[in-house]
Amino acid sequence: MTVTPLEALPIDELRERSSTKWRRYPADVLPLFVAETDFPLAPAITARLARAVELGDTGYTPPDPGIRDAFVGFARRRFAWEVEPHRVRTTCDVMMGVVELLRLVTKPGDRVVVTPPVYPPFYDGAPEAGCEIERVPLIETEAGWELDLAGIDAAFAGGATAMLLCNPHNPTGTAHTQESLAALAEIAERHGAHIISDEIHSPLTQPDVEFTPFLAASDAAARVGFAVTSASKAFNLAGLKCALMVTASDRMTALVDSLPEEVEWRTGLFGAIAGVAAFAPESDVWLDSLLAALDENRRLLADLLAEHVPGARYRIPDAGYLAWVDLTALGWGDNPAVKILRDAKVALHFGPMFGVEGNGHVRINIGCSPDVLRHAIERIGKLVAAPDPAAATAP
């Protein structure tokens, strides 16, 4: 079945938005940095939020706003993953869930494995929970990015007690394989460690790629793991504040149930209302259209970089709307996004924020119209042959 790609809003309308993406930089800058998209909301979300405003439904979030059952249905339809509703609990956002879960399974001073280049808040979340970071970088092979299972095994053998998994991985867009995740779970169980899997990008996995929820990877994964997810990335709801903590075994469920009630009270009512609409079957067509648009853009970016930014290295991602691009060959320093912002007026995410493995890299948000993406890369391309003004004035 042919799916019509979703169309982004016109840029003049987007500039009326008050979110970070459109207010962080002046109007002459094209913003392709923070993880917000430029598409209209799914109609079901718009309708339910509008009705809530009409009703003045702006109070406290109830214990069961319906999002557990909605997510159970979504997981079954999209991932063939059977989730039991009583194993789902809400909180404010994914990183809040990550921190609270770390506090459950670690003690102050414990080491937590991260796999750079990786989502920058991981570097803050672990210390917030009183832990130290242990870095085990991804391995880049000819086939793509992979977890360094031997390195993770060594880290756990050396005393690390937990790991923050990004699945699909941000910024590379890698959907880790079932085999890799099952092996990771066995390693963790052998060492008595826990895995907290951030799966916020999972709804954005392309149809030609299989997404494996960590908790469904194996029986061991269910015993050692937690998943934290949200509708916020796929459906552009970050400001509404609702995330889900999911478990798949009685022991792990009991741990989450032991969290203070306040953790759940932090859930935003509008986030829950919007999440129910996002995870409902009526929003599947919208999501499929979004994925079609992102598929076009992830391939368009490859063509644009080849034409305008020769030397750039880019792997088409499995999931998401974030593209990880290596610009080291251009000689623009460890943080090329600084030059690009200054000289091309295009805002990209700073590569070094993802770890030292991000030196020379940028992360590009492709959740926009093809015209905006094309304009941005053309601007960057003009810098490739142009002399660097800063170099001309250097002593």
Rank of each mutant, 00 (worst) to 15 (best):
M1Q: 13
T2I: 08
L6Y: 07
L6H: 12
A8Q: 02
L9T: 08
P10E: 05
I11Y: 15
L14T: 10
S18P: 02
S18T: 12
S19R: 14
R24L: 15
P26W: 13
F33P: 05
V34P: 05
P40M: 04
L41A: 14
A44F: 02
A50S: 15
A52N: 05
E54V: 14
G56K: 09
G56P: 03
T58D: 15
T61R: 14
P62H: 11
P62I: 10
P63D: 00
P63Y: 09
I67R: 01
A70P: 07
F74V: 11
A80R: 14
V83A: 14
T91S: 00
G97I: 14
E100L: 14
R103M: 12
G109C: 15
R111Q: 14
V112F: 12
T115F: 09
P121I: 01
F122S: 09
A129V: 01
G130Q: 10
C131T: 01
I133E: 13
E134G: 03
G144Y: 01
G144I: 09
G151L: 09
A155P: 10
G158T: 10
P171V: 06
P171Q: 02
Q178P: 07
Q178V: 08
E179F: 06
S180I: 08
A182P: 00
E186G: 10
I187S: 00
A188S: 04
A193G: 10
H194V: 08
I195M: 03
I196H: 07
S197D: 11
E199T: 05
H201C: 09
L204D: 12
D208A: 06
D208P: 08
V209E: 13
V209R: 14
P213Q: 12
L215G: 06
A216M: 07
R223A: 14
F226R: 06
V228A: 07
V228N: 09
T229C: 06
A231N: 03
K233A: 04
K233M: 05
A234S: 13
N236P: 00
A238P: 03
L240Y: 15
K241V: 06
K241M: 12
M245W: 01
R251C: 04
T253V: 03
A254Q: 14
W265S: 11
T267L: 06
G268R: 11
G271S: 10
A274E: 11
A278D: 11
W286C: 04
L287A: 01
L287W: 00
D288N: 14
L301G: 01
L305Q: 00
H308G: 03
R313P: 05
P317V: 10
A319Q: 05
V325G: 05
D326F: 06
L327H: 02
T328F: 05
L330T: 00
P336F: 03
V338D: 08
K339R: 15
A344G: 13
A347Y: 12
G351C: 05
P352C: 11
M353T: 15
G360F: 04
G360L: 03
H361K: 13
V362E: 09
V362Q: 01
P370E: 04
P370W: 09
A376K: 04
G381N: 13
G381T: 02
A392G: 07
A394N: 06
